[in-house]
Structure formats: C-alpha cells, structure tokens
C-alpha cells in the first residue's frame, strides 16, 4: 500500500460552488434517485438508443469531459423526456416539443401523451424496487403493469439484449423460480 489514507474526504465535503460556465447551455439534470432510474432504464435505453450510442462513441474518442458536453446534453434531455413522460413532473421545464412531422400514431413521445402517462404504474414499480433491494425479480407484478402501460401508451417495450431466442425473457416468465424471498 502506497498510502495509509483512504480515497475519501472525511474532514470536509468536496464542494465547489462555482457554476458551470455560461458558454455551456443549461440543461436540467434528471434529479432522480436510483430506483426510479432503474425502473425506467429499459425505456430510456430503448427510446434514447441513438443519442446514447452517439455519446458513448464520443466518449470512446476522448475521455475528456469537455469533449462530449453537447452529446451529453442530448442524452440528458432524452432521458428526461422519457422520464417526464413516465412521471409527468410538472416542475421540469424542458418538456419535449411535440413532433409535428410524425403522424399521431408514432409520435409517441409528445406533450399530449404526458397527460395519459403511466404515473401510477411507474410509482408502484419503483417503490416496489425501493422496498425490495432493487431486485427486478421481486417486483414482477407492478413491472408487468408498467410494461403493459408503457407499451400501449408510449409504444416502448422492454427487451433484454442477448436473451435466449425462442423462449420468454426473464421478466415475462409465467412461473419464475426466483421471486421475493418472503411470499
């Protein structure tokens, strides 16, 4: 061991009050804790696939935080879009504008849809995750309701890449072996 000190600041917090330079456009942070993010993760991943991959390719180019700020803002806006649609938080001002070029059938993510979003199912699922050590397998019932709602209203479906072909994915199993420890 080269040092006897842990990599943590125990005596004072690592706080820097200086704001982001004004040259960087403002973007609202997601501001969500881990359980809601985990609950929405597959929908964020599906809806924001292009911007996410763009951002990760940019990061692969250069790890400098200054290099991918623009792509990062797109990522955050896109995730917030899904999030707002799921949550319809009234205090997030960066609501996505309705997409006029698309037909109503596939303009699934627009302000109009927010009213009929899946707030109740979403809340039920992430609170279940919160109470069950964030195990997906413990919350299949609220998850099924959420997936159903998101599929019908937002046209996003949860798919796990790399799942075995020709059999139901792990979240669609009728009789899973691993559920909650307590019934």
């Amino acid at each position: 061991m080269s040092t006897h000190r842990g990599a943590a600041f125990l005596d004072q917090p690592y706080v820097d009050p200086n704001p982001l330079p004004s040259s960087v456009p403002h973007v609202d942070e997601l501001g969500a804790t881990s359980a809601p993010l985990k609950s929405a993760s597959f929908f964020i991943g599906q809806h924001c696939k292009d911007v996410n991959e763009d951002f990760m390719l940019c990061k692969a180019e250069n790890r400098d935080p200054a290099h991918c700020l623009k792509e990062g803002r797109k990522v955050t806006r896109c995730a917030a879009e899904v999030y707002v649609v799921l949550l319809h938080l009234p205090d997030l001002p960066t609501l996505p504008p309705p997409l006029p070029t698309q037909s109503p059938a596939d303009s699934s993510l627009s302000i109009g849809k927010i009213r009929e979003s899946c707030l109740a199912e979403f809340d039920a699922h992430w609170q279940c995750l919160e109470k069950n050590n964030q195990y997906f397998q413990a919350c299949r019932k609220p998850e099924r309701a959420l997936n159903q709602c998101v599929f019908t209203k937002l046209n996003l479906s949860k798919t796990i890449p790399g799942s075995p072909e020709g059999q139901p994915q792990v979240h669609e199993k009728k009789n899973p072996i691993f559920t909650r420890v307590q019934k």
């Binding site: 942070e29 997601l30 993010l37 985990k38 993760s41 597959f42 964020i44 991943g45 599906q46 924001c48 911007v51 996410n52 951002f55 990760m56 990061k59 991918c68 792509e71 990062g72 803002r73 990522v75 955050t76 995730a79």
Partner: peptide, 10 residues
C-alpha cells in the same frame, strides 16, 4: 448499461 450515458453525462 442503459443508464450509463445519462449518469456519465451528468
């Protein structure tokens, strides 16, 4: 994996 870009961006 789906959450990595959002968290990394922040």
């Amino acid at each position: 994996i789906h959450l990595v870009p959002a968290i990394l961006a922040e």
